[in-house]
């Protein structure tokens, strides 16, 4: 593999039921590429949590998965409200999701911590009122 492979998805923010479809596609694509199962699982979970976050908080966005020789990078961009306090948002159990989301099985303050848990690097660029971009990498070697 020389040129990085890029998978791009529009994440629909209007329908919680369909949230996660992009992650399912990515998982299938990575399987077809023959990546190790543990790597695929880590990418899938990190992306799935990110996708759910985009639907809950930001009315959707764009997800890109870039597969290169040494890493899988996930880039999640939204034009949502931004994160006022990233340090606080990274704490397990801290959530600003409405209680209606909790009844759907999410919004327990585990999304961002899980994304960090399953990736090797994670960077958050965010501006209140403008949006958030999250870059995560999982190294293959």
């Amino acid at each position: 593999m020389t040129e990085p492979l890029v998978f791009r998805f529009n994440v629909d923010g209007s329908d919680f039921t369909s949230a996660g479809q992009a992650s399912v596609h990515v998982k299938k694509n990575l399987r077809e590429l023959g990546l190790p199962p543990e790597i695929i699982r880590r990418v899938s979970i990190a992306m799935y949590e990110g996708e759910i976050n985009m639907v809950i908080h930001a009315n959707g966005g764009v997800a890109e998965v870039i597969v290169s020789e040494d890493a899988v990078e996930i880039v999640l961009k939204d034009q949502g409200p931004g994160i006022p306090n990233v340090e606080q948002a990274m704490q397990e159990g801290f959530s600003t999701a409405p209680s209606s989301v909790q009844s759907l099985g999410f919004g327990a303050g585990m999304g961002l911590p899980n994304m960090k848990r399953y990736t090797d690097t994670m960077e958050i660029e965010t501006e209140v009122g403008v949006g958030t971009t999250i870059r995560m990498k999982i190294f293959l070697k």
């Binding site: 949230a19 996660g20 992650s23 399912v24 998982k27 979970i45 799935y48 759907l104």
Partner: peptide, 12 residues
């Protein structure tokens, strides 16, 4: 809801 199945799928 559908996220139960997606969660299970992500976790193998």
């Amino acid at each position: 809801n559908s996220q139960v199945i997606r969660t299970a799928e992500m976790m193998d």
